[in-house]
Design a protein around this nucleic acid. Structure first.
Lengths: 305, 305
DNA sequence: TATATGGGATAAGCTGAGCTAATGTTATCT
DNA sequence: AGATAACATTAGCTCAGCTTATCCCATATA
């Protein structure tokens, strides 16, 4: 495959190098897990390629020619380096490591609070978290498991439903006192609303769609503050800057801590949600399975409720 | 062939290295003189061996992963070194070089006086002369052509007859005046005789055998001086130290220059002689043929006379 | 919007380089 | 003289690596 004017088959060089180290074809064969005639033939072929003898055949072994010495020096150092880096890469890979990707919101509100438990349960697994502003920004390459907000359709991948989408307005207790009570969606127009940029992630529920689902007309004149990621938006809601849409499971803890109040009367559901997604080819991977099963067992996920 | 726990097939690494340089499987295939699917499969196999991705597949090419970068660095430098030494060895070999071996006597008296002509005729051929005390000391390894005194039987080699053995007593003109005339071999007993050690080369004619060939009894009581190589013996003869045996072709020039007088009445021949010997496997070698043909064309050789 | 292009991925079948087992040869060693 | 070890050679087998054909995908172009 290498340009035939350039290089012999590299395997020949490896056979030569072993023979040169051992000064014996039989010992080289043993090291390489093959037979002496195979080694003999390969070395001979290499000598023919180079048109120069590399060994002198002596009683019970071989001696290196000058040319042989020169070639051994280079091949020995080169193969040592190559062995080192291969060993490094294999060692690196054999320590179980998991690349997990998700968006900031999920990472911040759902995963990070639970991750210490995973680490405690599986201390040998090195988990590397890759976060993106939003699910749509996540590229699956180099990722073992991605937790994506989507419709669950991922060609060539397995998508385990983790949390189905259930959305409702949320606001801080203080904002509720100031602008409340909210007995209908129309009452919300009294307060500023917080929303994501419309091009951030079109799969996410938004105010227009929520109003529509409750058969209420959405008026564009309402005071709206826009954000380009959900964590910022949630922080603004907690700070009393407006009414936001809250995603079940993500905002559960904050509701529980009374940082936010859910307006459950106006909740909506959809078939979208968070899915634990991995490549078909990783389906059998033990680490991937371990992590996926752990995700599905968590409080706050559909299967665990 | 390499220990399967250690190293992938080296060819895979070469394919990877080319792909990593070009960041394209198609370009690598071109360089390596093969096809894109072959490269794709080899890289994939390597990634599976290492259980880690080396490339990210992107539009119209590939990008290196971190692991890919690490591996490329090492493989690139290693293969560059290997290419360099291979190129060096091949270049070294492609400049025609001839290793010629012979004994001191032939080198001194026959070959050296003629060699300048060979160099003039074939200036591109680098001729390296290896000399030994005697023909029996010559080892054929690393030798392209050996000029040996022998019976012409060399298993696995081609032996071209160069000079057949014809031997006669020689002495200096001064010794002849002092001890001569020598009308019979018995008359030689009046003078000291010069001979080679009996264990030097049993294939060479000696006094006993010469006397026997002339049906004259050899008497051990004769004054004999022994030498362990022929060039010394000849110098002693020239210096008038005794009567020596002279080999046709070797001593011809000295006879011509009147440094030595041949006693032709007592000459003998045999089937032994000097042969130009090369390995069967070098029979087609152009340089070997050139040199051998030149030897055979020389004045003083059997075929040229 | 439809089509073209480029390049990696995959599948299936072919083949020859590399391997193996058997044997020959040679140079010691006992 | 016979045994031993180790390289060289031969002949036949086989499967890794290659090729051809095709698919898939992400642009680019008209």
């Amino acid at each position: 495959m290498l340009s035939e004017n350039d290089m012999p088959p590299l395997q020949m060089l490896a056979v030569f190098e072993s023979s040169g180290r051992h000064l014996s074809f039989t010992a080289a064969a043993r090291e390489l897990g093959t037979t002496q005639p195979a080694v003999s033939q390969q070395v001979k072929a290499l000598e023919e390629f180079l048109q120069t003898p590399l060994f002198r055949r002596v009683y019970r072994g071989v001696e290196l020619t000058d040319e042989g010495h020169i070639l051994l020096k280079t091949t020995q150092s080169s193969f040592t380096e190559i062995r080192k880096v291969i060993s490094y890469l294999r060692k690196k890979r054999t320590s179980p490591r998991l690349n997990v990707a998700t968006d900031f919101a999920f990472a911040a509100y759902w995963l990070m609070p639970r991750l210490p438990e995973f680490r405690r349960l599986h201390p040998q697994i090195e988990l590397r978290l890759h976060t993106a502003h939003n699910s749509v920004d996540i590229v699956m390459q180099d990722i073992d498991v991605a937790i994506l907000f989507s419709d669950g359709v991922h060609k060539g991948f397995v998508a385990n439903p983790l949390i189905s989408e259930r959305v409702f307005p949320i606001c801080s207790p203080r904002l509720l006192e100031e602008y409340g009570p909210f007995d209908s969606l129309e009452d919300l127009s009294r307060a500023p609303l917080l929303k994501l940029h419309s091009d951030v992630d079109e799969k996410w529920m938004n105010w227009e769609r929520l109003f529509e689902k409750h058969q209420t007309l959405w008026s564009p004149s309402q005071s709206v503050m826009e954000f380009d990621n959900y964590t910022l938006l949630v922080q603004a809601a907690i700070a009393g800057q407006g009414v936001a849409l809250g995603w079940r499971s993500l905002v559960d803890d904050m509701i529980e801590q009374n940082m936010l109040v859910p307006l459950m009367d106006f909740s909506v559901s959809s078939t979208n949600g968070y899915f634990a997604v991995h490549s078909q080819s990783m389906a059998e991977d033990e680490v991937v399975q371990t992590f996926t099963n752990w995700l599905l067992s968590q409080e706050g996920s559909d299967s665990a409720s």
